[in-house]
Design a protein around this nucleic acid. Structure first.
Length: 204
DNA sequence: CCCTGATTCGC
DNA sequence: GCGAATCAGG
């Protein structure tokens, strides 16, 4: 495999999106993460910091709150890392039809209903059970940081907790590092595997 | 161990 | 220019 313009484009885009070298390598295929990193350096885009903006520390979170209610910040607007609107540098004479990937417009006749996959491989949703407030808060927090992987992107070590409605585009898998030997990340393990007890003492 | 990026250096 | 091997770290 060689670094064609197209592949370099993908590399640039994904790197700008903050994807890891290994993820990019996986996407491109035929190259290792080393190759990707090497290319990144040769292209001189090693430094992901674009502007002289603040160093913006990584959103360190995820610790399931040991003491004191976490009181999760009501962060209303999901920042959505959608960067790089691809500044088109004035394409000269080219008409450039631009394929425009329209995301399947729903016909008005489309009847939406609360379809639930019925399959039982899906883990219990947080709302379906009594979850400890800590675990719940942790899950909410972690879902904001989900890597939003597709089914194909899951590996043995990525959290397979589904997020969103499978019937819509708003569906993905958590994708954060899973606990060794478990299918989910720490937060989701917390809500997936319950001791099952809470309602045991319902006295008659 | 799993993963990350950074660097070196023979090709 | 390329990228495996290696280094340095989380």
């Amino acid at each position: 495999m060689s670094w064609t313009d197209e592949r370099v484009e993908t590399l640039k885009r994904m790197w700008a999106e903050g994807q890891s070298a290994s993820q990019i390598a996986k996407e491109l295929g035929g190259v290792t993460r080393n190759a990707v990193i090497g290319k990144v350096h040769r292209l001189g885009l090693s430094n992901r910091a674009e502007e002289g903006a603040d160093p913006a520390p990584e959103p360190v979170a995820a610790k399931p709150a040991v003491a004191a209610a976490p009181a999760p910040e009501p962060r209303p607007a999901a920042p959505e890392p959608a960067p790089a609107p691809q500044p088109k540098p004035a394409a000269a004479a080219a008409p450039a039809p631009e394929p425009a990937p329209e995301p399947a417009p729903q016909p008005a006749s489309f009847n939406r209903r609360p379809i639930v996959p019925a399959g039982q491989p899906l883990p219990p949703q947080p709302s379906a059970n009594e979850i400890s407030p800590e675990a719940l808060a942790s899950v909410r927090e972690v879902e904001k940081r989900a890597r939003k992987l597709t089914l194909m992107e899951l590996t043995e070590r990525t959290c397979k907790w589904p997020i969103g409605d499978p019937a819509t585009d708003k569906f993905w898998f958590c994708g954060l590092p899973s606990m060794p030997g478990k299918p989910y990340c720490e937060a989701h393990v917390g809500v997936a595997f319950q001791p099952m007890s809470s309602r045991r003492d319902r006295r008659r």
